[in-house]
Computed example of a mutant assay.
Amino acid sequence: MRIDFTKMHGLGNDFVVLDGRKQRLPALDAAFATALADRHTGIGCDQLIVLEPSEHGDFRMRIFNADGSEVEACGNATRAVGLLHGRPARIETLGGMISASPCDGGISVEMGKPRFDWDAIPLAYAMDTHTMPLAWEGLASPVAVNVGNPHVIFFVDDPYAIDMERLGPLIETDPVFPERVNVNVAGITARDAITLRVWERGAGLTRACGTGACATAIGAMTRGLVDRKVTVTLPGGPLQIEWREDGEIVMTGPATESFRGNFDPADYGLAAGSTD
């Protein structure tokens, strides 16, 4: 048994996509996801994306980080599978139901509504999520928001002056975040423009993070720093984020198919007959 895959990326945030609607897949676990994601001995990716049939939407999307952890949402991956699907779709995720549609700017994704309650982030104890009374060295008073997965956002003068490789994992694993957290450092450059770097939970410093762009835009909007439609520029490129009057977050940006291939699951420690 060989498994077909599609390699894709959104602004350099890359994925291995397995389509379980069209083929039987090996039983999924952290070790399998980590083996596929390894850039030296596997296919290599930031996240493993698995598509499955859904009783509630057009299909279900499961997301495994490079460290094997399964997470709730990934905006860039949603655009990628929207491109793969080729038409409007309602997608079931652990973070809730979202929608993706092809458009002139690539793929437009309705990401749902942001949540700000401390226990929805979640945090270890109650506090103000709009201006958290916490600091990690020079990074202080962040915004916390859940946009399908948890984010904390720091507004700074120069995001590229922050040592994210050191501070990112320190903040990600702080006990105040019982499910860990994605760490964003952002600079406001205009009423409609934000510069952003993201330390992604379970994946590390990334070229792009769709949910990070959404969370950061929402955090800046709630503080009155920007208007309700902005361009968020990450190292991999720009995303357009709009917070509609109905509360829905809409993200628009490109997605790209890199190549297709197949592999033998036995090469990754799985018996050929082991399937879901």
Rank of each mutant, 00 (worst) to 15 (best):
A126T: 11
R60M: 10
A89D: 10
L84I: 04
V176E: 12
E172W: 11
M61G: 02
N76Q: 04
N184L: 09
S108K: 01
I107E: 02
A124N: 08
P114S: 10
R79S: 11
M164W: 13
F154C: 08
D158N: 15
G112S: 03
A144M: 11
F64P: 02
I171R: 05
I107A: 03
T131H: 15
E70N: 06
G96M: 00
F177H: 06
A126D: 14
E137R: 15
F177K: 12
A89V: 09
S101G: 11
G105P: 01
M164R: 12
C74N: 02
I121G: 04
G86Q: 11
P122R: 04
P178Q: 13
D117G: 08
N182W: 07
V81L: 03
E92L: 07
S99V: 03
A73E: 07
P178I: 14
I107Y: 01
P150L: 01
P102V: 04
F59H: 02
G187V: 11
A120W: 05
P114R: 06
R180I: 07
P114H: 09
R180F: 06
P133T: 12
E137G: 13
A140V: 15
A80F: 00
D128N: 15
H130D: 12
V181F: 13
G75V: 07
L167K: 11
A73T: 09
F116L: 08
I153T: 14
S69W: 00
G95R: 05
L94T: 06
Y125D: 15
